[in-house]
């Protein structure tokens, strides 16, 4: 369907090291600087390849967000048995006093 093609591919994608570092932080991945450089280059390579769709005129296309169209899937408001707290907390890295224990939350973005 050639009428979908509206323009040439755009130029190479460039991701700044700052942008890559920001993404790593958003994803909460501690990535060492040299590893980040390598990964950024790989991401750029992929995004460059993925620029093939930039040639498509998608202005009139509705995004597809469901693989099978369903609507109004609802559940009756009826209580079912819960999981056993001790079993669940035993699987946690740290627990105390019936609760999950975590390091201090300073610096966590709410």
């Amino acid at each position: 369907m050639p009428d979908r093609i509206v323009k040439d591919k755009s130029g190479p994608v460039r991701i700044t090291p700052e942008a890559a570092a920001k993404v790593a932080h958003l994803a909460r991945l501690d990535i060492a600087p040299d590893e980040l450089v390598r990964m950024t280059a790989q991401l750029e390579g992929m995004l460059e390849h993925f620029a093939d769709i930039d040639a498509l005129d998608l202005s009139a296309v509705e995004p597809m967000t469901q693989a099978f169209p369903l609507v109004n899937v609802l559940r009756a408001d009826v209580v079912q048995p819960c999981l056993d707290r001790d079993e669940v907390l035993a699987a946690a890295p740290a627990a105390e006093d019936g609760r999950f224990r975590v390091p201090p939350m300073i610096g966590s973005g709410a």
Binding site: D77, D97, R99
Partner: peptide, 26 residues
Amino acid sequence: TATKLFSASPNRFGDEPNTNIDPVTL
């Protein structure tokens, strides 16, 4: 409600911690 928004464990205030839990809640 009797249960949570997306799962069937109780929506109840004041219970022992982590007793109203199910796979979805966790």
